[in-house]
């Protein structure tokens, strides 16, 4: 099996005959304007040409930040270009999991890249079960913004992918809420590995100020949400 070095067959939307994701050419998961910026970028033309799912790793291990577009010209980050390249390659699920686990242990930006791809292409239940284990990955990530960089952590990025509707210049398709899938018996309730610690913390606080807080709160949210997700 082969694919075009310049991804031309994947980029040709009308004559597209490749694998579909949610009934469409996977490249359409990235907005048209951003797609054009990617394929016009030097990084795409020079560094993404001729890659397959194995040689793409050469580039991914060199990533030093995540992000969508940056600068006044809204230039696409190498992170976004590689995510887009993956959408044209549509690697098998086992390959994506290899990126996430074996590769992701060694290279955090490779894990972030694979996680982003998982959020775009996997089925809802698989998205939760595949990504949630990395809510305990506290490694720091640099993120390129319109101006400059900000610091965040892997768990925050994973949480963003699971709870937000936009990430890295891409609108994320509507993922059913965790609770919804639990109610349909499609997902088991998630017990955060941090839950025991959180409970302990609650108890300590209660002991200290004698404030009998409602105990149900600690068990209500199965996900560790970032502080900015509400409000």
């Amino acid at each position: 099996m082969t694919h075009r070095a310049d991804a031309s067959s994947a980029l040709d939307n009308r004559g597209y005959a490749g694998p579909l994701i949610r009934g469409a050419n996977p490249i359409t998961l990235i907005e048209t304007a951003v797609r054009d910026r990617i394929t016009e970028s030097l990084y795409w033309k020079e560094q993404c040409f001729g890659l397959n799912a194995a040689t793409l790793l050469d580039r991914a291990v060199d990533l030093s930040y995540i992000g969508g577009t940056y600068g006044v010209g809204m230039r696409p980050t190498p992170f976004l270009c590689l995510a887009f390249k993956l959408l044209t390659l549509t690697p098998e699920k086992e390959i994506v999991l290899e990126y996430l686990n074996m590769g992701g242990e060694e290279w955090k930006y490779l894990r972030a890249l694979a996680a982003f791809y998982v959020r775009l292409t996997f089925e809802p239940v698989d998205i939760y079960t595949t990504l949630e284990p990395f809510l305990t990955d506290a490694r720091k990530l640099r993120r390129r913004r319109k101006e400059g960089y900000v610091l965040m952590h892997m768990d925050e990025f994973i949480d963003e992918l699971l709870t937000k509707d936009r990430s890295c210049a891409t609108s994320l398709w509507k993922l059913p809420g965790r609770q919804q899938l639990e109610d349909l018996d499609m997902l088991e309730e998630r017990v955060s590995p941090l839950q025991a610690e959180l409970d302990e913390l609650d108890e300590m606080e209660q002991d200290q100020d004698g404030d009998p807080r409602n105990g149900s709160e600690s068990g209500a949210s199965p996900l560790v949400r970032s502080s900015s997700s509400e409000g």
Binding site: H3, R4, N52, A53, T55, V61, E98
Partner: peptide
């Protein structure tokens, strides 16, 4: 060159990760 790139297998990916 043909302009066609060979599709990578899981084994190719594993080997690449090991090499890197």
């Amino acid at each position: 060159q043909s302009g066609e790139v060979a599709r990578a297998t899981l084994q190719d990916v594993r080997n690449r990760l090991e090499m890197l």
